[in-house]
Simulated assay, not measured.
Amino acid sequence: MNPVVINERFAVCGQIRPKDIADIARAGYAAIINNRPDGEVFLQPSAAAISAATQGAAMESVNIPIAGPDITEAKVRMLQKVLAESRGPVLAFCRSGSRSLILWAIGEVFDGRMRKKDLVPFGNARGFDLSRAVGWLTENGY
Rank of each mutant, 00 (worst) to 15 (best):
C94I: 04
G68C: 06
A84P: 07
R17L: 03
M78L: 14
P65Q: 05
P121V: 10
A105E: 05
N2S: 11
E73P: 11
R87E: 11
I71E: 07
D20K: 03
S96T: 15
T72R: 11
V109E: 01
G123P: 07
A57K: 02
A57P: 04
D20M: 06
V5N: 14
N140I: 03
E108I: 01
V90T: 06
R132W: 12
R99H: 10
I33N: 00
M78T: 09
R36N: 04
K81L: 13
L91K: 04
A105R: 02
V12R: 08
A133H: 07
W104T: 06
E40F: 03
G28Y: 13
A52I: 09
S86V: 06
I32T: 00
D23E: 15
A30H: 04
D38W: 01
D118V: 11
T54K: 03
I24T: 08
M59A: 05
K117T: 14
T138Q: 14
S51C: 06
A49P: 02
P37N: 09
A31L: 08
I106T: 06
G56N: 13
G28L: 13
A52F: 10
R115D: 13
D70Q: 11
N35V: 00
T54G: 00
N7S: 10
P3S: 07
I64N: 00
E40H: 04
L119V: 09
A47N: 09
V109P: 02
P69E: 15
V62Y: 01
G14T: 10
D111Q: 10
Q55A: 14
P18L: 08
L137W: 07
K117H: 12
A11F: 09
Q15W: 11
A25H: 12
S51R: 05
A48V: 02
R26V: 05
A22T: 11
L101E: 06
K75G: 03
F122K: 06
F122N: 04
R115S: 13
R77V: 12
A105S: 14
A105W: 05
R132L: 14
K19A: 15
R99F: 10
S131N: 12
S46L: 06
D20F: 05
